[in-house]
Amino acid sequence: MPTQPTATLALSDGTVVSGRAIGHRGTTRGELCFNTSMTGYQEILTDPSYYGQLVMMTYPHIGNYGTTPAENESHVPKAAGLIVRSCTDTPSGPPRREALHDYLAKHGVVGITDIDTRALVRQIRTNGVLNAVIDSSGADAGTLVARARNCPDMAGRAYAHKVTTQYAYTYNRDNGPTVVVVDYGAKRSLLDAFAQRGCTVHVVPAATPLDKLRSYAPDALFLSNGPGDPRAMPEAVEHARACLNANLPVLGICLGHQLMALAQGMQVYKMRVGHRGANHPVKNLTTGRVEITTQNHGFAVDAASIPDQGAIVTHRNLNDDTIEGLRYPQHKAFSLQYHPEASPGPHDSDYLFDSFLEMIPNHAPALRTARHGLAVAG
């Protein structure tokens, strides 16, 4: 990689650090969050749930194995910027893999390296998430701090319309159940999880009304992950309520999980730091099994708001006891705060896709491949 200019990272609390620019030269801003995954930086960058956020990787060496189109979770990066301790100039691995620096530059992503990410992570863990600016255009520190302070907070921001598909499309056609995916920012790996199980997968824009969903003759509905504050999405909450009342199996993941909870009268709150990484321990309260999970969320369901009859907690985070899964006994539905498809991360929770498909009448016997049980039927 050729010699790169100096870059500056400015936080809304006035912190300013200097490093080396990577990727596109320019300025970008957003909520600064950190991810503890050791690998999977390309999947993280292209995860639509990171829209509007600057991603800081805690693992010190990033870019070691380069990039390849096969590891994209969406067509282009959705993260607003990248912050790393050390970016590898020349990747190892198979030939024709593109260097991370070149990948970022090609897609217009501003990044910074050669800074003390460990210190910044400790600062965020102590004080909570902050907004920040990455700049490689030479702007002065005072201007950058002011831009960071003027950056819109993630709370109150509805971003799903920025990343949802603009047109309905069929991702996979097969002889198995038909699953309609409501796309709030769905990762490709989620679609693959259904395709690998022989499902016909139709992906529709987030605002698609229920009668249009029914026109696909679905066997089940899936409410995807996505960015932003679910509390700022009243239409999506009403849509989730309609889906729950449609007498079809429904699974919601991440943002979809939060929308389903809101639709059932629960509350969602902004977390001080959030969960982002591929090493979060979650306990399945039905089986007692502990799973290592992949997570990416800054909002969570308030446990105190869960009604006595409307939902049952099925999973909890063993780090902070937050809600990770809910079952809705009055509906054919359950939801998960984390990502059972991983990518990046372990596949301990992959069985939950089978548990979901087993809820479909006449398909359960053929699809009963899970080794770990979860009572999901209403």
Score class of each variant (00 low, 15 high):
Gly66Pro: 02
Glu291Asp: 15
Ala303Met: 13
Val182Trp: 03
Pro91Leu: 09
Ala236Ser: 14
Tyr171Glu: 05
Tyr51Pro: 04
Ala132Leu: 07
His24Ile: 02
Val17Trp: 03
Tyr269Ile: 14
Gly19Arg: 01
Asp174Leu: 15
Gly93Thr: 10
Val268Ser: 04
Gly138Val: 07
Asn279Thr: 03
Ala80Ser: 14
Asn131Asp: 14
Leu336His: 03
Tyr351Cys: 14
Pro234Met: 09
Ala155Gly: 09
His315Ser: 05
Thr170Ile: 11
Leu45Ile: 00
Asn64Ile: 09
Cys87Val: 06
Val16Cys: 07
Thr178His: 08
His372Asn: 14
Ala300Trp: 02
Tyr103Val: 03
Asp320Gln: 11
His101Ile: 06
Ala303Pro: 12
Leu32Tyr: 06
Leu374Gly: 07
Leu213Arg: 03
Arg147Leu: 15
Ala7Leu: 04
Asp320Met: 10
His372Met: 14
Thr293Trp: 03
Leu104Val: 02
Phe334Glu: 01
Asp153Phe: 07
Arg272Pro: 09
Val109Glu: 06
Glu238Ser: 15
Gly23Tyr: 01
Lys270His: 12
Tyr351Ser: 12
Gly14Trp: 00
Gly226Ser: 08
Gly176Asn: 05
Pro94Met: 14
Pro234Gln: 06
Pro227His: 06
Val273Ile: 13
Leu213His: 01
Asn64Val: 10
Asp174Asn: 15
Glu73Met: 09
Ile115Ser: 07
Phe334Ser: 04
Met38Thr: 03
Gly265Ser: 05
Asp116Lys: 06
Ala261Lys: 01
Gly19Leu: 08
Pro329Asp: 07
Val133Cys: 06
Thr287Leu: 11
Pro69Arg: 03
Pro230Ser: 12
Asp114Ser: 15
Gln264Thr: 11
Tyr184Met: 08
Gln309Trp: 13
Ala232Val: 09
Cys87Ile: 00
Val204Tyr: 00
Asp153Trp: 08
Ala193Asp: 04
Val204Ile: 05
Arg157Lys: 12
Phe356Asp: 06
Arg276Cys: 15
Ile292Ser: 14
Val129Phe: 13
Gly373Arg: 14
Lys283Arg: 15
Ala132His: 04
Thr293Tyr: 01
Gly142Lys: 04
Gly138Glu: 10
Val109Ser: 07
Arg327Glu: 06
Asn131Phe: 06
Asp89Met: 15
Leu190Trp: 04
Thr58Asp: 15
Ser18Thr: 12
Pro5Gly: 10
Leu352Cys: 10
Glu238Arg: 12
Asn279Ala: 15
Asp211Glu: 12
Met154Asn: 13
Val109Ile: 11
Asn127Tyr: 05
Val133Arg: 01
Arg231Glu: 12
Tyr328Pro: 00
Thr286Ala: 15
Gln295Tyr: 04
His61Val: 09
Glu71Tyr: 13
Tyr59Val: 04
Glu238Trp: 02
Arg214Trp: 02
Pro307His: 12
His202Arg: 12
Gly176Thr: 01
Gly14Ile: 09
Thr15Cys: 09
Glu71Lys: 04
Thr322Gly: 10
Pro152His: 08
Val163Ile: 03
Leu54Ala: 09
